[in-house]
Design a protein around this nucleic acid. Structure first.
Length: 578
DNA sequence: AAACTACCGTCTCAGAGGCA
DNA sequence: TGCCTCTGAGACGGTAGTTT
């Protein structure tokens, strides 16, 4: 099967999403394979299809309809495989996508099967002719791909020798235009001598063209820190270093819509490079930085980001700009001379002790940038957090670097003031409550919801009341709250109660017990996870090997509420003789 | 027979809405 | 600010069918 066109993102980067064009219709290809594997195909299916729908609408083009177009259903007449009606293309692109993917999933599923089915199938979309005369290719923003699609294999790139590289360096030194198609250095530079620095991809591209006997282009190989390109350049005796940033002044962006869009892009980049730890916490593996997005308390619908959150006394907030060109804000979006968008933050860490000015520069090792535009009573010192026109991983890396430097500065400032930085002593948290609350009708009808979690807690508290209260709750100063700490018969117990029944609830509970045990210094406590279902022997075994004991409770609805039945084994270790 | 294509089915995650 | 429930949607192993 040929896949003739490729979707190009607004940034100009080609996406992994392909389509064919047939007259006034385009066929958008399905996604397949596991991400990261060589077999992965059309991995950007979702984002790309949304983008296409947006572009069609933006172009004022008329859409005639969308149909499932997999081989399996091709024999069916068009009207039997509609996934979006003509009228529905009036809806917002996001809504169109939602409708289409939902219908794709349930198409021809056996009756009664609520789940299952792919949402990433091949679809055919017809765009009407009255599209302001533009051709479909132009409206969709796609590019014809005739040649190579993949990057060159490593064994080809490894054919590049030090001699090829030396020759390439000499050619580029004599004539910087001798590698057409390659841009100037952005992230890294090849150090040739004191005066001469060259773009690594151009050097390697030229060397590879020489070695392989055909014109190697930028898309044929990756650059970046761990790439074969950098490795071979270094091996040939040319150090590759981070590019020296030009010290051009930045201009504060005053259009709030652009600021907000850039802000959202930044958050997306971070989120895309992280995985969830539950409870709104995200973890960037690659950079060892934790963060949590929180609704802004200054602006509705905006999100602030708190980074480095395990230790709130070391964390850094980057809050959504309140207005355009706000030279007084904590953070802002600015542009450099070439129009690139940059997220900047003031070099001012609040709290005790406060870190700002010269101390911030010294402790972080960062250099402030010159920023113009906007008016403020005092001059602010701005620092670059991330260049937002870069790839997500680079945005995340740059943000993480900024945050880690801020955290180090905070820790150093504390240490310098003679105050060590121990984790804060835990506080006692309020008791749980049971009963019910009414869930308003949103997507589901209004309903009474029982606070099972609270009921279990109250039942346990009741059983452990005598002699003297032995169930308490602790709360870390950063806000993390433990379900219970029990002075048990055979030692103290750290308890986490889960009402959910999914594997994710178990993962979350085990994770919470690990984290809380460490954060609250409760290393000598038995870690107990109380589940609402009977775990399998395998799960019990696996969690036990992590140092977590599993017990399950049961609850039943009675006339006057909820009756909770706690397991005897668990009550025994709690010291209840019930 | 191996490799590839185009899906399916399930797991998992993330966000919204809501409560204390 | 943490946690709960619900829901949409992405990730990804698995596999039938097709092509080489």
């Amino acid at each position: 099967m040929e896949m003739s066109f490729r979707v190009i993102a607004d940034s100009g980067e080609p996406m992994d999403a392909h389509l064919d064009i047939e007259g006034d219709e385009f066929i958008f290809h399905s996604r397949g394979g596991a991400k990261g594997r060589a077999s992965a195909r059309n991995i950007d299916y979702g984002p790309a299809l949304r983008l296409l729908l947006t572009r069609i609408q933006a172009a004022g083009a008329r859409v005639e309809g969308a149909w499932l177009d997999t081989e399996e259903v091709r024999h069916l007449p068009l009207e039997a495989r509609v996934i979006l009606e003509r009228d529905e293309f009036q809806a917002r692109p996001e809504e169109q996508f939602r409708l289409m993917s939902g219908r794709m999933q349930i198409f021809q599923r056996p009756p009664g099967s609520r789940r299952g089915g792919s949402r990433v199938k091949k679809v055919r979309i017809r765009v009407g002719q009255k599209a302001r005369g533009a051709d479909l290719e132009g409206i969709l923003g796609v590019r014809w791909t005739a040649g190579r699609e993949q990057r060159l294999p490593a064994h080809d790139l490894n054919k590049v020798t030090a001699t090829h590289i030396r020759n390439a360096v000499e050619r580029l030194r004599r004539d910087p235009a001798s590698a057409p198609g390659f841009g100037p250095a952005r992230e890294y530079e090849v150090v040739v001598d004191e005066e001469t620095r060259l773009p690594p991809k151009a050097v390697f591209g030229l060397a590879a063209s020489d070695a392989l006997g055909f014109s190697v282009e930028p898309a044929d190989f990756s650059g970046g820190a761990a790439s074969i390109c950098h490795r071979l350049l270094e091996a040939a005796g040319y150090p590759v270093v981070a590019a020296r940033k030009p010290r051009v002044p930045l201009m504060l962006e005053d259009d709030l819509a652009i600021v907000d869009e850039a802000w959202d892009g930044w958050i997306n980049a971070l989120t895309g490079e992280a995985r969830s730890l539950g409870s709104g916490l995200l973890w960037m593996d690659a950079h060892s930085v934790i963060f949590s997005p929180r609704p802004s308390d200054k602006r509705a619908d905006r999100t602030d980001i708190h980074l480095g959150g395990f230790r709130h006394d070391l964390s850094v907030t980057i809050s959504a700009p309140l207005k355009g060109a706000d030279a007084n804000g904590l953070s802002a979006i600015a542009r450099d001379a070439s129009g690139r968008r940059v997220l900047i933050r003031q070099g001012w860490l609040r709290g005790r002790p406060e870190v700002r000015g010269e101390q911030f520069r010294r402790l972080t090792g960062l250099t402030p940038v010159e920023v113009t535009g906007g008016t403020a009573p005092t001059v602010r010192e701005w620092y670059i957090v991330a260049d937002l026109d870069k790839a997500s991983d680079e945005i995340a890396a740059s943000t993480a670097d900024f945050v880690l430097r801020c955290m180090e500065a905070r820790a150093a400032a504390k240490a310098g003031s003679g105050v060590p930085a121990p984790s804060s002593p835990p506080l006692t948290a309020g008791e749980e409550t049971g009963g019910t609350f009414t869930r308003k009708a949103v997507t589901q009808p209004e309903a009474e919801v029982h606070r099972i979690h609270g009921e279990v807690w109250l039942r346990l508290q009741d059983l452990l009341k005598s002699p003297g209260p032995r169930l308490s709750k602790l709360r870390h100063q950063a806000g993390y709250e433990v379900d219970g700490v029990i002075a048990g018969a055979e030692g103290r117990i750290l308890l986490e109660i889960k009402t959910g029944r999914s594997a994710a609830d178990v993962y979350e509970g085990v994770g919470q017990l690990m984290l809380y045990s460490s954060m609250l210094g409760l290393h000598d406590h038995r870690k107990v996870l109380l589940l609402a279902f009977e775990p399998s022997a395998t799960l019990v075994e696996a969690t036990r090997s992590c140092g977590v004991e599993l017990y399950s409770y049961a609850w039943t609805k009675t006339d006057d509420g909820i009756e909770v039945d706690l397991p005897n084994g668990f009550l025994a270790i709690c010291g209840s003789d019930r």
